[in-house]
């Protein structure tokens, strides 16, 4: 998980990532994948380094960072909750799960709790349709989730344990 790191540390880490690739525009996507993985978001400094390294205008790098959903320009939470809203999950009540999560954590898809613990996302299909509705927290898959399960699941990650922790 990304710790809070200062500008020089970010620069060093970005340089390490860039060094893995030839300075060609075709590697922009792959480099961004690595940065997203390293920092849990794309730091502005990293994007600038990426643009000059591959020799493309900053606007093109920014266009890609904002076009592809895999990337985030803001830091994400420690636990990323992905609620699948593919068709199979949708018709089995995925939206109610999103509503329930809002009730406990006060975040909507795309948002992060103020203490940086949880981020909520909806995804189009996780390919686990037989278990619909599905949600994933970091790597763990929860299948056939009912709205009543949400409280217990969030508590597993220390969310909503008491008033003080509620965000």
């Amino acid at each position: 998980m990304p710790e809070i790191i200062d500008a020089t540390a970010i620069e060093k880490a970005c340089k390490e990532i860039l060094d893995h690739y030839a300075p060609e525009p075709r590697y922009i996507l792959a480099i961004m994948q690595d940065m997203q993985k390293r920092f849990n978001y794309l730091p502005p400094q990293g994007l600038k380094m990426l643009a000059s390294y591959t020799g493309v205008p900053f606007s093109q790098v920014y266009a890609m960072a904002s076009f592809y959903k895999a990337f985030s320009l803001k830091p994400k939470g420690r636990y990323i909750i992905k609620v699948c809203d593919g068709t199979a999950c949708h018709i089995k009540g995925a939206e109610t799960l999103v509503e329930q999560i809002y009730k406990y954590l006060q975040i909507r898809p795309g948002e992060t709790t103020r203490d940086g613990s949880f981020s909520l996302e909806t995804v189009n299909c996780l390919g686990a349709c037989a278990l619909a509705p599905v949600m994933v927290i970091n790597e763990k898959v929860y299948g056939k989730v009912t709205p009543a399960d949400i409280e217990r699941i969030i508590k597993e990650y220390g969310g909503w344990a008491d008033e003080g922790k509620q965000c």
Binding site: D85, G86, H90, N124, C125, G127, A128, C129
Partner: peptide, 12 residues
């Protein structure tokens, strides 16, 4: 780049 929700044969 299998994107259709509800289809996972390519993944498999």
């Amino acid at each position: 780049d299998e994107g259709d929700p509800g289809a996972f044969m390519d993944r498999s």
